[in-house]
Design a binder for these strands. Structure first.
Length: 114
DNA sequence: ACGTTGACTTATT
DNA sequence: AAATAAGCCAACG
């Protein structure tokens, strides 16, 4: 059925799926996910999808998704002040000044890894 | 119903 | 190199 069809909410679900595949202690970017889904310019929708993922029952490691600069741009949408950073640090990721250190090494790109 | 906003990124000036 | 424009498209007011 579907098969990569647009005009469906599959985009959002696909985002959740991909984010769940991010390995422990690694991070990915909005653009990488968007590109993997076939819409390299829909990176904003990835963020919006993740916004909805928060009240999903499924565990979606949204804290492992940062922008292409490695900055924790989405942390403001987490409960508390730096919940996102704390979660990342609890996985061994070093965060400094809202930016993931060694981001380039920790980056997990689905178009490359899959 | 129309206009604005937004967890972004790439291209152009 | 730095600033501005544009593209994406769903949700909110």
């Amino acid at each position: 059925m579907n098969r990569i069809s647009n005009t469906d909410s599959n985009f959002f679900e696909s985002v959740y799926q991909v984010v769940r595949l991010v390995p422990y202690g690694r991070v990915t970017t909005y653009g990488a996910i968007a590109r993997y889904l076939g819409s390299p310019q829909s990176s904003r929708m990835v963020g919006w999808a993740l916004n909805g993922s928060q009240h999903l029952q499924e565990w979606v490691p949204a804290h492992r998704v940062v922008n292409r600069n490695g900055e924790l741009t989405g942390k403001i949408h987490f409960p508390g002040n730096n919940t996102m950073q704390q979660l990342l640090e609890s996985e061994g990721i070093v965060v400094e000044d809202n930016t993931v250190v060694n981001f380039n090494e920790l980056l997990w790109d689905p178009t490359v890894e899959l």
